[in-house]
Design a protein around this nucleic acid. Structure first.
Length: 951
RNA sequence: GCAGGGGUACCCGAGUUGGUCAAAGGGGCCGGACUUAAGCUCCGGUGCUUAGUGCUUCAUGGGUUCGAAUCCCAUCCCCUGCACCA
């Protein structure tokens, strides 16, 4: 058959679509499987990263359908966001048009790949019938007290002209544009995600995310147990609250450090000689760039603020400093400094000549009188406590007893701090969900009543390149409104929502996507989301952003009674990076654009080598999916992607590997074609083929269920083809056998290469669609192990015969025309068989093994004693331990031996095939001792390893 | 610095409850058979050696063991994330 991938693929895509085979409905009679990929931002065309993501998902969706599951496999677009807005400004259009033309382009790319989405469930978050539910749920959040508008120092990105959530700042840079963020004080909308901090953290123990994702989330939430301690300021009513995880070091506090932005700083030093120093420090910290800050980290810098505070435990007066290393946003922005037991405080104390006091000693150690060389940060018994009753306590006991005392004195309490902050939701951008709130002069901030939703984005907005800020602000008919509560003049909120809000619940909308009265009906969500999304595939880059927001949102909707589950995702698979070669300089450790191949390093001038690097526009090492599809077809691209590496592993793009996979397609086609000319001519090898099918199907289902797609494809597209070719070589030509084999095999080709599989299916004469087919799971036959082992025995004889033939030719002057095979002597087979049954019965060979065989004739004969041991079990020969053969036999081989296989008969039955495979005219076969030993080769014979001599 | 994951032959990659491991499978490369031809199929080679063996190998160095890619300890290197978080 000629292989016209374009024709075959588009034809079947149309048939599938016409038949609606991928449309899923609730069906309580079937187990469900919700297969989901992180939906894309529609930026023009599909790139290879998408192809990998969706090829994995589609293979799993198709596999689960074959296994009889009711599969929900939807696709949508995360279509709000800045790129569309920027494109609109550049081209003078409206983001709505830009977005929709991008969506249709990427959708047609996806369709061309043959992904089996239920397109009726299509959604785009920028469509009003999606984002109106964002608004409705925002009102619900508000009613639950989870929305808050407050002034806060926020991360501002000048380039994007908007604020960013903490999760969206990476290395002090905007996650999207890479520009450094600056701090601004602004009134902003927050979602109080921190209400769920504990559950978000604790539930990580019960969900099956990859370990690195869990770790990232744990670090991000950053729960620390400790104490809040109040340090009253001497001569003032003010109190400095400090958070510490180490209340057991309270007696070592020798000063207090505030962050330079701390509101008390000004109050403490205003109008004093210390004020100027503090202002300088604060300004310096505020304008520090990231680069400077990293350098500054090494140097602890601070100023005295002119006042003292009182340690509530010891009543000591200690100086108050402002220090550059204290972070204003964590804890209270104030630190009780314990230089003896905290390295940063130690460095600071050294720099400013402050007292360093040791109040803990190492367990079992003795009190040191000499000055500490560095802080001791471990745990140990308290010493030098200025109050009775603490010395000698250590660890949790010490902490608890300090906390108890503080609580009694009303000077502090045990508490928990989190690194996690509330979710800063508002954005000063146009292309997002309008926050449904109204500002009224007299009533304050009033939510838009539900019946007035949606608050729609106006379409009559003109975007120009010079424009800065949010065009909603100047859109009068949008802004001007009336107050829902007093009916007076009021203004709409012009901030829009972070787009991560859109993606925090889309997986629930997919369950009931066309619902026009609520975000989703509970029965639909409870059916599809039961146990969470069964398989969620996407990039690791969302480990703390999207995946954390979505988990929070699901907990909120659960508590609002909208759904049952509290964790949205069951199995999460983070696909690995897609790499391609890029020019690389080892000396400079940097990668360059592909234009630099064969050139010298632009920075050091040495010749560039090549190494594999993440596909990216900046390196220019991307590969266009469209080009690959048009050259090789979607099936080849899918096969390459799935076979190139397991989903989680990184994978290197390789043109030659892609071509090899294309050749594999031809091999498959040729293999299937061969079967169609068969007639009814049964032979022994038929049984073997069917046994292989059963064994392969079992293994395949096992690995595919575990998302080990590489292994799955290895079986379905490589091993089974090899089996098929072996069947043909062995003279298999039976139509009935071939038909049952192909009926078992072809469906297994469908997850990775669905189009060619469907084409094969039709060639079999099937009139139903393979896409609708459910695989009958085959029962293993009790004979399978024996049948497979016997064939393997023949393969082994041929394979060792081949190896030996080459050697024999070197040593023989005559032309080789025949071989003599001598099987193992009967006593070895008997002994082996006995050893196997004893081994299975748990016989202790080390203890009693030797005495057991000593009565054997072969043991008494010096020349065969070694062979006794080899056949028997592990034993010492010549001072060197060897293993008995029993340990190297597989299950099938042990079966053959215990059942007393007649090797001579088996070889005779197959002598013609063996002879042709080994290119000799004839084969003689004897059991050892039956005739003269040709060249003494029989002594190499063991059960299942006959001696072979070429003559 | 902290945390998580890694380092297996030319490359990718399996193997990690110790013995079935000179180490699956694939790719590449070299050579051969079949074929008008290839896109097929088949065979050989791809650490050194060899009538069926022996030697040296799984980042490095030690250790446990009759026996280690696999277990333990230390070291080096790579990736990812967080980072003065009190």
């Amino acid at each position: 058959m000629t292989y016209d991938a374009q024709e075959i693929e588009t034809r079947w895509q149309k048939e599938w679509s016409d038949a609606g085979v991928f449309e899923a409905e609730i069906d309580e009679s079937k187990p469900k499987f919700y297969c989901l990929e992180m939906f894309p931002y529609p930026s023009g065309h599909m790139h290879m990263g998408h192809v990998r993501n969706y090829s994995i998902g589609d293979a799993m969706a198709r596999f689960q359908r074959l296994m009889g599951k009711n599969v929900l496999y939807p696709m949508g677009y995360d279509s709000f966001g800045m790129p569309a807005e920027n494109a609109a400004k550049k081209e003078g259009g409206h983001p709505h048009e830009v977005t929709h033309s991008n969506i249709s382009s990427i959708r047609s790319d996806q369709e061309r790949m043959g992904y089996s989405y239920d397109w009726r469930r299509f959604l785009a978050t920028s469509d009003v019938d999606y984002y109106r539910w964002n608004q409705e749920m925002f009102l619900a959040l508000n009613e639950k007290g989870l929305v808050e508008r407050r002034m806060a120092p926020v991360n501002w990105c000048v380039d994007c002209d908007t604020v960013l959530a903490n999760e969206q700042v990476k290395n002090n840079r905007c996650w999207r544009c890479g520009l450094e963020v600056v701090q601004r004080d602004m009134a902003q909308w927050f979602v109080r995600m921190t209400e769920y901090s504990d559950e978000l953290l604790d539930e990580l123990d019960n969900i099956s995310f990859p370990e690195n994702v869990k770790t990232m989330q744990r670090n991000w939430i950053g729960r620390s147990h400790g104490a809040h301690i109040d340090f009253p300021v001497v001569g003032s009513d003010s109190v400095i609250g400090a958070f510490t995880t180490r209340p057991d070091t309270i007696f070592g506090v020798t000063f207090v450090t505030l962050s330079p932005e701390h509101p008390l700083c000004e109050e403490l030093c205003l109008g004093t000689e210390w004020e100027e120093g503090w202002r300088n420090l604060r300004d310096e910290c505020a304008r520090m760039s990231e680069f400077e800050r990293i350098n500054m980290l090494k140097e602890k810098k601070g100023v005295f603020l002119g006042k003292h505070a009182i340690n509530p435990m010891s009543d000591e007066e200690i100086p108050i400093y402002a220090g550059n290393f204290v972070v204003s946003s964590y804890g209270t922005g104030a630190v009780m400094a314990v230089p003896g037991h905290d390295q940063r405080d130690f460095d600071f104390a050294k720099a400013y000549n402050l007292e360093i006091r040791q109040v803990l000693i190492e367990k079992g150690g003795s009190e040191t009188s000499s000055p500490l060389k560095q802080a001791f940060e471990g745990y140990g018994p308290m010493v030098n406590s200025s109050v009775e009753g603490f010395d000698g306590l250590s660890g949790d006991e010490a902490k608890n007893s300090v906390i108890a005392t503080l609580e009694k004195k009303n000077s502090g309490h045990g508490t928990v701090e989190y690194r996690l902050k509330d979710w800063l939701l508002s954005r000063q951008r146009f292309w997002g969900t309008p926050i449904p709130m109204i500002h009224c002069e007299s009533c304050g901030i009033v939510p838009v009543p539900r019946e007035n939703l949606p608050v729609e984005l106006p379409l009559d907005v003109v975007f120009t390149e010079e424009q800065s800020g949010n065009p909603l602000e100047s859109h009068n008919s949008f802004v001007q409104t009336s107050c829902p509560s007093c009916d007076g003049e009021a203004k709409r909120e012009t901030d829009t929502m972070d787009t991560f809000y859109d993606s925090s619940w889309y997986f629930m909308r997919f369950c009931d996507v066309n619902n026009e009265s609520t975000p989703f009906d509970r029965p639909a969500v409870d059916y599809w989301m039961g146990g969470g999304v069964d398989l969620y595939i996407g990039g690791i880059e969302h480990a703390v952003m999207h995946l954390l927001y979505a988990r929070f949102f699901t907990k909120f909707t659960r508590d609002a009674g909208m759904n049952e589950v509290g964790e949205p995702f069951g199995r999460l698979v983070c696909q690995g990076m897609l790499n391609a070669p890029a020019p690389y300089c080892g000396d400079c450790n940097s990668e360059y654009h592909v234009d630099n191949f064969d050139l010298d390093c632009p920075s050091c001038g040495k010749p560039l080598s090549s190494r594999s690097a993440k596909m990216s526009k900046s390196l220019g090492n991307t590969v266009s999916p469209e080009e690959m599809i048009s050259r090789f077809g979607a099936d080849t691209v899918r096969l390459f992607i799935l076979f190139g590496a397991n989903p989680e592993a990184g994978m290197d793009w390789s043109d030659s590997a892609l071509e090899a996979n294309h050749r594999q397609m031809f091999s498959l086609i040729d293999g299937v074609d061969a079967a169609l000319e068969f007639s009814d001519s049964a032979s022994k090898i038929d049984d073997w083929l069917m046994s292989r099918l059963r064994a392969n199907q079992k293994k395949w289902i096992e690995v595919m269920s575990d998302v080990s797609l590489r292994e799955g494809v290895m079986i379905s597209h490589f091993e089974m083809l090899s089996d098929w070719n072996w069947y043909l070589r062995r003279g298999g030509r039976d139509r009935i056998t071939a038909m049952s084999f192909l009926h078992g095999w072809i469906p297994m080709l469908a997850p990775a290469t669905p189009h060619i599989a469907e084409e094969f299916w039709k060639k079999l004469g099937r009139e139903d669609l393979l896409a609708k087919f459910v695989i009958p799971v085959l029962q293993q036959d009790s004979n399978d192990i024996r049948v497979l082992a016997l064939e393997n025995y023949i393969k082994e004889i041929i394979s060792s015969g081949r190896n030996l033939r080459a050697l024999a030719e070197r040593h023989s002057d005559n032309e080789i025309t025949r071989i003599v095979i001598q099987t193992s002597p009967a006593w070895k087979s008997d002994l082996a068989s006995e050893a196997i049954s004893l081994h299975e019965a748990g016989f202790d060979f080390k203890e009693k093994g030797q005495s057991h065989v000593k009565s054997l004739e072969a043991f008494k004969d010096e020349s065969t004693r070694g062979e006794v041991f080899q056949t028997w079990n592990s034993i010492t020969i010549g001072g060197k331990k060897t293993r008995g053969r029993i340990h190297t036999w597989l299950e099938g081989e042990r079966t053959l031996i215990s059942e007393g296989i007649n090797e001579v008969e088996v070889i005779k039955e197959n002598s013609e095939f063996i002879a042709s495979a080994l290119e000799v005219d004839s084969i003689e076969v004897h059991s050892a001792g039956e005739s003269e030993d040709v060249g003494g080769k029989a002594r190499f014979a063991f059960p299942l390893e006959p001696g072979i001599a070429f003559v």
